[in-house]
């Protein structure tokens, strides 16, 4: 099994007619993802390389049975796009790749989704989700992945690639790699993904990649202590980051004394997680679990 995306994924892309959206959506299709539709208001009735475009998500769902939305809509319109996707019956996952959405929009959308459709939202500002050998919904380079037993969840994009690369070069494959994104209010948190990996019979171990800022890693540690039986290997980026500076990601900032890498490492170690201090040791640490 895989989590979030797999053989039953029927993908509709908001922004398929744009350069970025089109490029990645068709890369996803070439990998085997079932790309069924695009949505661009005002371009309904046209097509891109044979993929039909609709004016609304609801129309796309009705005509094609789409169940997963990927969003490439620019920041000023992204919150609205996610709300539209959540309102469409039949959509069971939204993956928002867009970077640069205001935190106030994210907070409002997150709270609204919790109160209404409860549709899981992955991202924003994330590389998406790949279940190797099955489906890729996002911008991760599938070439570095390999089907196998390890679940990967990460706040970072390229650092995820680094971790997956370390696993794959050792012949250790992945069930699903989930990039939850580097923003202050991610739609999906470590805890949500850990819960799914714990429930997934094919996932035998989990790699968790965190970074400075917020308390998501500490919350993950609490959840692991109470609910996760599978071994977890973790890496936290930003040990040497200075306080008060946003390190590239909007959410990667040490505020006062909170959000440091050290506190996160300690919280995870305290609950039995193997914490490595160098990302190139992730592969070794997972191999050592066997």
């Amino acid at each position: 099994m895989a989590i979030y995306v797999g053989e039953s994924t029927r993908l509709v892309v908001q922004g398929l007619t744009g350069r970025e959206g089109g490029f990645h959506a068709f890369r996803n299709r070439d990998y085997g993802t079932n790309l069924v539709a695009g949505v661009t208001p005002g371009k309904g009735g046209t097509d891109v390389q044979g993929v039909p475009i609709f004016d609304t998500v609801a129309e796309a769902v009705e005509a094609t049975g789409a169940n997963t939305v990927m969003t490439f809509v620019p920041p000023p319109f992204a919150a609205d796009a996610v709300l539209e996707a959540a309102a469409a019956d039949g959509i069971r996952l939204i993956v928002c790749i867009t970077e640069g959405i205001p935190a106030q929009d994210e907070a409002r959308v997150y709270a609204y989704l919790q109160q209404t459709s409860r549709t899981p939202l992955i991202g924003p500002n994330c590389p998406g989700v790949i279940s190797p050998g099955k489906a890729n919904v996002g911008i991760m380079p599938h070439e570095i992945t390999l089907p196998g037993p390890v679940g990967v969840v990460s706040r970072s994009g390229t650092l995820t690639y680094q971790a997956v690369h370390e696993l794959t070069t050792r012949g250790i494959g992945q069930t699903t790699c989930v990039g939850i994104g580097g923003d202050p209010v991610p739609g999906t948190s470590f805890v949500d993904v850990l819960q799914r990996f714990e429930a997934d019979p094919e996932t035998e171990a989990v790699v968790l990649i965190g970074e400075i800022g917020g308390t998501a890693e500490e919350q993950a540690a609490e959840f692991i202590a109470a609910h996760v039986t599978k071994p977890v290997v973790a890496y936290i980026a930003g040990v040497t980051a200075p306080p008060g500076k946003k390190m590239g990601h909007a959410g990667a900032i040490i505020s006062g004394s909170s959000g440091t890498a050290k506190a996160k490492q300690e919280a995870l170690e305290a609950v039995g997680v193997t914490v490595v201090i160098d990302p190139t040791q992730i592969g070794e640490a997972v191999a050592a679990l066997r």
Binding site: G157, T158, L159, Y235, G238, G248, H249, A252
Partner: peptide, 22 residues
């Protein structure tokens, strides 16, 4: 990528150096 660059800073420090920038 922010994560990879932060991580590079950390690894440089781990092997005894110190980063001039992010």
């Amino acid at each position: 990528g922010a994560g990879l660059v932060m991580s590079t800073l950390d690894v440089v420090s781990l092997v005894g150096g110190s980063a001039a920038n992010f």
